[in-house]
């Protein structure tokens, strides 16, 4: 088996890299793939929280690198899905504790046993980013339809294009708010895609369910009814190679919804 190593990166912090990682990983595992997620955000680890695995971590990536344990011992199995594993970041160390070569080596070893290795990249373009990208051959650039996030994504794309090892990168547009796009107060999906001229792999709507799912340590893809969950599931299917159309994020336009919107729109404008 030779797995695919995909780094999930963004440049800007807070756009949803880790949430994306947790959800795509879970969705791929639910589709029957063997998945391992590597948290490379040393000192600021969070992927364990989103997966609800924070109490199960015994060894971290730094323990593996410093040979206090074997790689397999450090992999934490998911609560629900035996196909899913996490290699956690160390919370007490900084970015210098692991080198590019070491990460490359870990990815190479994991390729033998897993279909997908998802690398969660820290924010920024410094060494942490360089480390995370080192072992990967594909990338997903997460951004939101906000100026600062798009600008940072553009920078990241420039850096990824300069890396020979990265064979392809795709754009994931997170926290899209169809209402704001409709009223011309938010850049549309087409705007962002045109500005960055990159291929799109997913459009995720802003969803309050993300907050509650994080609270519970339960990725939102496990919630069949959630729109964001569906969107993340679709991203996973596209990664596998299925041709899945993008979701229609417009709200259902029943008569009641229209009346409601009419009144909320009026009060909004009178302010």
């Amino acid at each position: 088996m030779s797995g695919r190593v995909i780094v999930i990166t963004s440049g800007k912090g807070g756009v949803g890299k880790t949430t994306t990682n947790a959800n795509i990983g879970t969705a791929l595992a639910r589709a029957g793939k063997k998945v391992v997620m590597i948290d490379t955000d040393l000192g600021l680890r969070n992927l364990d929280l989103l997966l609800g695995l924070e109490n199960r971590i015994v060894y971290t990536i730094v323990d593996v690198v410093e040979e206090r344990c074997k790689l397999k011992q450090a992999l934490v199995k998911d609560k629900k899905n035996p196909n899913l594993c996490l290699l956690a970041a160390a919370q007490t160390r900084d970015k210098t504790a692991v080198t590019e070569e070491q990460l490359k080596d870990i990815c190479e070893q994991l390729k033998k046993d897993f279909d997908f290795i998802l690398v969660d990249c820290p924010a920024g373009i410094e060494q942490g980013f360089q480390n995370a990208v080192a072992g990967a051959s594909e990338a997903i650039v997460v951004t939101t339809p906000e100026m600062s996030a798009v600008r940072d994504a553009d920078r990241i794309i420039g850096l990824l294009e300069a890396k020979e090892e990265i064979k392809s990168y795709k754009l994931l547009l997170n926290r899209v708010r169809p209402n704001l796009i409709k009223s011309n107060d938010m850049m549309s999906v087409d705007d962002v895609v045109e500005i960055l001229s990159a291929d799109l792999i997913g459009i995720i709507p802003e969803d309050t369910g993300i907050i509650t799912s994080t609270n519970k340590g339960e990725p939102i893809v496990n919630d069949e009814k959630s729109l964001a969950g569906k969107a993340y599931n679709n991203v996973a299917r596209r990664i596998i190679g299925e041709d899945v159309p993008f979701l229609n994020l417009e709200e259902p336009q029943g008569v009641m919804a229209k009346i409601k919107k009419f009144f909320s729109g009026l009060t909004g404008k009178e302010k």
């Binding site: 100026m147 798009v150 796009i181 107060d185 850049m187 549309s188 500005i195």
Partner: peptide, 12 residues
């Protein structure tokens, strides 16, 4: 122009 257009133009 809408705030979205302003954003797009500034970004470009």
């Amino acid at each position: 122009e809408s705030s979205k257009d302003t954003a797009c133009n500034r970004l470009r």
